[in-house]
């Protein structure tokens, strides 16, 4: 298969970026998207065309959340429910032009080419995305039964990989789906209850501070989430937020 690639190139955070167009021929349809970029980079080096395109990637099996490209107007490309590394070239037509951009958000500054800094997500988690259980000194694992449905729902929320596709897809670059997945997970579990009221307020405050937008319920995040995290998590977080604001004793 042959492709024309329009790729965003940007030397560093301060530099002004631009699109470069590269032609790539003879790609197998079984090739993954990132493998296609590997081949491109080999070609760029060997043919002395340009420095290789820098893009984040690690596990290449859709779980680490490292990869993330905005491909032809959709985060993680045209396939639903997959990360960029699991996207295969058979999803494109021979001769297609593919435009590849980095995640765009104020809270995700570009480091180089297609690599962005997502440490804002870590900062949100640090505000309250945990249950304070110091090592040791916890009850037996079966001491508190948890209804299967709650556990399953918590698991679904917890399967977020923190890739940032929700932010990239959202017209407001909002991190609501990401934050709500974590808030939901703990809201559903009895272990998460003691800190629930503080957690939701602090995490949202941090999200706002970091420059993410607000939610306008467009649900592009849900449509693009490679782990199919549901928008009902956002509703649950809103509920938690209202409940916290109305009943919390803390200032």
């Amino acid at each position: 298969m042959d492709f024309t690639l329009k790729i965003w190139r940007q030397e560093n955070a301060q530099a002004k970026g631009h699109f470069e167009t590269y032609k790539l021929t003879g790609i197998s349809p079984d090739c993954s998207f990132l493998e296609m970029l590997d081949i491109l980079n080999e070609t760029l080096i060997n043919d002395n065309i340009a420095h290789p395109v820098v893009f984040d990637n690690d596990c290449r099996e859709g779980i680490c959340g490292m990869c993330g490209l905005y491909i032809n107007g959709r985060p993680h490309g045209p396939d639903d429910g997959v990360t960029t590394c699991q996207l295969h070239m058979r999803r494109f037509k021979d001769g297609d032009t593919i435009t590849i951009e980095p995640w765009r958000a104020k809270a995700f500054p570009i480091i180089k080419d297609l690599v962005v800094d997502r440490s804002a997500f870590d900062k949100i988690i640090q505000e309250g995305g945990y249950i304070s259980a110091t090592t040791g000194g916890v009850p037996d694992a079966n001491a508190i039964p948890i209804p299967k449905q709650d556990a399953d729902e918590a698991m679904d929320a917890a399967s977020c990989i923190g890739c940032g596709a929700c932010v990239a897809a959202c017209k407001n670059a909002s991190a609501m789906l990401f934050v709500s997945a974590k808030v939901s997970q703990f809201a559903l579990l009895p272990q998460g209850k003691p800190e629930a009221k503080r957690r939701v307020v602090k995490m949202i405050k941090k999200m706002d501070e970091l420059g993410f937008g607000g939610c306008t319920n467009t649900y592009a995040c849900e449509a693009e989430c490679p782990k199919s995290i549901k928008k009902t998590n956002i509703a649950r977080m809103n509920r938690e937020f209202i409940c916290s604001k109305c009943t919390s004793n803390e200032q």
């Binding site: 937008g213 319920n217 467009t218």
Partner: peptide
């Protein structure tokens, strides 16, 4: 809200977003 939300993405995308969204929401 619209202004704040606009500010959260100072540099936009070259290709307009094609994600599925709730009708009218955008």
């Amino acid at each position: 809200l619209a202004i704040e939300n606009k500010m959260s993405r100072p540099v936009g995308y070259a290709v307009a977003n094609k994600s599925k969204t709730h009708s009218g929401s955008k």
